Simulated scan of single mutants.
Amino acid sequence: MSPSRRAQAPSFSAREFRAALGMFATGVTIVTTRTPDGLPIGLTANSFNSVSLDPPLVLWSLSQAAASLAAFRAGSHYAINVLAADQKSLAERFAAKGSDRWSGVQSVSGAGGAPLIAGAAATFECFNRSRYDEGDHVIFVGEVERCTWRQGATPLLFHGGRFFTELPL
């Protein structure tokens, strides 16, 4: 028998899939870029992951339905700001629709003008190397041009629909 060339239909609902995914604890990021007009764009994402050390590559994904998709597709650079535990309110603000996300947020311009959020546990300044349409999301692969981190920073974590901070075992 030859192996199947296609996956079988899922035996679970979208809700069950989301609940299972929620068992994977992740860090929390705000991914930022600028529109062609120079306006800052940012959104909360926990789909961040490393890909390669040589060259230094990372990935993240964005819904095909996201209002900011065009800006991220078109821009040459973006930044991934890994949030610290004391930045929970920023994670919530940048996840909400219709809010003024940037009001009072301290940032500086990084590579290609992408905003770097003050106080982040780490930042990755990325060249927008490649994009892959998969399902209802676009996977962005960035080539890291610069990265920084705060020694001793406590990361903000997300698990099962709630925010946490790290606790050493």
Score class of each variant (00 low, 15 high):
residue 85 A to H: 12
residue 104 G to T: 11
residue 95 A to K: 08
residue 53 L to A: 07
residue 151 Q to D: 12
residue 106 Q to H: 03
residue 134 E to F: 11
residue 75 G to E: 06
residue 82 V to I: 15
residue 102 W to G: 01
residue 98 G to N: 09
residue 145 E to Y: 02
residue 34 R to A: 09
residue 104 G to R: 14
residue 144 V to K: 03
residue 118 A to I: 00
residue 52 S to H: 07
residue 116 L to P: 00
residue 66 A to V: 05
residue 82 V to S: 04
residue 34 R to E: 10
residue 117 I to A: 04
residue 64 Q to E: 08
residue 86 D to A: 15
residue 109 S to P: 00
residue 74 A to Q: 12
residue 71 A to V: 09
residue 105 V to I: 08
residue 81 N to R: 08
residue 79 A to Y: 05
residue 131 R to I: 02
residue 40 P to N: 14
residue 109 S to Y: 01
residue 108 V to E: 12
residue 65 A to D: 12
residue 122 A to R: 08
residue 120 A to S: 15
residue 81 N to T: 05
residue 85 A to Y: 09
residue 54 D to S: 08
residue 67 A to F: 02
residue 109 S to F: 01
residue 92 E to L: 10
residue 57 L to D: 04
residue 117 I to T: 03
residue 142 G to A: 09
residue 100 D to H: 04
residue 121 A to C: 03
residue 35 T to W: 14
residue 155 P to Q: 13
residue 69 L to V: 02
residue 35 T to D: 12
residue 158 F to P: 00
residue 86 D to F: 15
residue 57 L to N: 06
residue 65 A to P: 01
residue 75 G to T: 15
residue 58 V to E: 00
residue 87 Q to V: 06
residue 115 P to D: 06
residue 138 V to W: 11
residue 58 V to A: 02
residue 81 N to E: 04
residue 36 P to A: 15
residue 83 L to Q: 11
residue 55 P to S: 13
residue 155 P to K: 14
residue 113 G to D: 03
residue 130 S to C: 13
residue 51 V to Y: 09
residue 95 A to W: 07
residue 72 F to M: 08
residue 57 L to R: 11
residue 155 P to N: 13
residue 135 G to W: 14
residue 51 V to N: 11
residue 104 G to Y: 14
residue 150 R to Q: 11
residue 109 S to Q: 07
residue 109 S to T: 03
residue 119 G to T: 09
residue 140 F to M: 09
residue 75 G to P: 04
residue 161 G to L: 02
residue 40 P to T: 13
residue 132 Y to L: 14
residue 70 A to S: 13
residue 34 R to N: 07
residue 124 F to W: 04
residue 42 G to D: 02
residue 159 H to S: 09
residue 79 A to C: 13
residue 115 P to E: 07
residue 56 P to S: 13
residue 143 E to Q: 12
residue 88 K to P: 00
residue 99 S to Q: 09
residue 106 Q to R: 09
residue 52 S to K: 10
residue 98 G to F: 11
residue 124 F to Y: 10
residue 58 V to H: 02
residue 148 T to N: 14
residue 157 L to M: 10
residue 108 V to R: 15
residue 34 R to Y: 08
residue 42 G to V: 04
residue 138 V to N: 10
residue 135 G to T: 15
residue 102 W to V: 03
residue 66 A to S: 11
residue 130 S to A: 15
residue 117 I to K: 05
residue 148 T to W: 12
residue 114 A to W: 04
residue 157 L to W: 07
residue 67 A to K: 08
